[in-house]
Design a protein around this nucleic acid. Structure first.
Lengths: 160, 160
DNA sequence: CTTGACCCTAAAGTTAGCTTTAACGTTAGG
DNA sequence: CCTAACGTTAAAGCTAACTTTAGGGTCAAG
């Protein structure tokens, strides 16, 4: 099948498929005499697999390291090891998110539990000082993870 | 104080402080006749605050939108609203991570629960097909979040 | 008067994972 | 023969949050 058809069937863009080939994630495919790429049906499975692995949190580098040349011959050891490490990573991230959440909620509490009068400046200082106290007890927070990600991933565009 | 001293006291690099000024996150500060920036002591608090907010998952754009011109005069409404939205974001991310984790663990189970004989190819196909079944029931996974983040953030370098 | 520690700016580089652009060849249909 | 829809490439652009580089001024000590 052509790259356009593969794109349609896999849900990935053509540019993305070519990009994967360019970084060596996909091996170079056969060409028709005119230069057009021709893909075997298994390519759909492979692309689905890659997309799925990404969804599970694997980088393209990690995926490349785990993908066997032949889809039927996996390195079970390496694969299961990588999966376990990924679970551990996710758990670490979960812990950090719990921390962040707890602290933000505590901060909301601080702000809302201000004295009845509107002593804004004093309240600000009080809240700030408590914030730093809390955070400095716990310098190993999430950060980069909560940020950046517009709720929808980049997995959306489809060229024709 | 000079930018070098501010850097030392806040734990941020000089380049980062200048960068924050360049994007309008910090307002332009006073200069000595020779062009050197001079910062008031409160600058340390402000930078700590920014770093803390980042740690909690706020982007620089979000922080800029929330920071009052005067540290003593916050827009409580906007601030609490943003904090609540951030908590919601974190919870959404937590849900997706739980999903990913569950699926990876299921996958590990699939791989390890293969028939006693070493029918590798058949097992591969079986595992792959189950994977796609699971994932396609649930197309709204994490992904971009688990990935990219080398366990330690970029918050580490210190220039002199 | 030189050395070293400090400061300045503008611009380019980094990372990941793509997309977009530009410029061009191919193919099927009317 | 023209047009629309496909395919090709290399290279540049995008995002966020910085860092690095290049080139140059300032300042205190010895």
């Amino acid at each position: 099948m052509t790259i356009g058809e593969l794109a349609r069937r896999s849900g990935l863009t053509q540019s993305r498929i070519r990009f994967y080939e360019s970084i060596g994630l996909l091996k170079t495919v056969e060409r028709r005499p005119n230069g057009y790429r021709i893909y075997p049906p298994e390519a759909v499975v492979l692309l689905d697999l890659i997309a799925t692995a990404q969804t599970a949190g694997f980088s393209l580098d990690e995926i490349r390291a785990l993908l066997p040349g032949d889809l039927d011959h996996w390195d079970h050891e390496a694969l299961v090891g990588a999966l376990r490490r990924k679970v551990a990573e996710i758990e670490a991230l979960e812990a950090r998110l719990r921390q962040s959440k707890t602290q933000i909620m505590a901060l909301i509490g601080e702000i809302e539990a201000r004295p009845g009068d509107i002593d804004c400046a004093a309240n600000a200082r009080r809240v700030l000082s408590r914030m730093f106290d809390e955070v400095k007890k716990n310098p190993t927070l999430a950060a980069d993870d909560v940020r950046r990600r517009g709720t929808a991933g980049r997995r959306s565009a489809r060229t024709g």
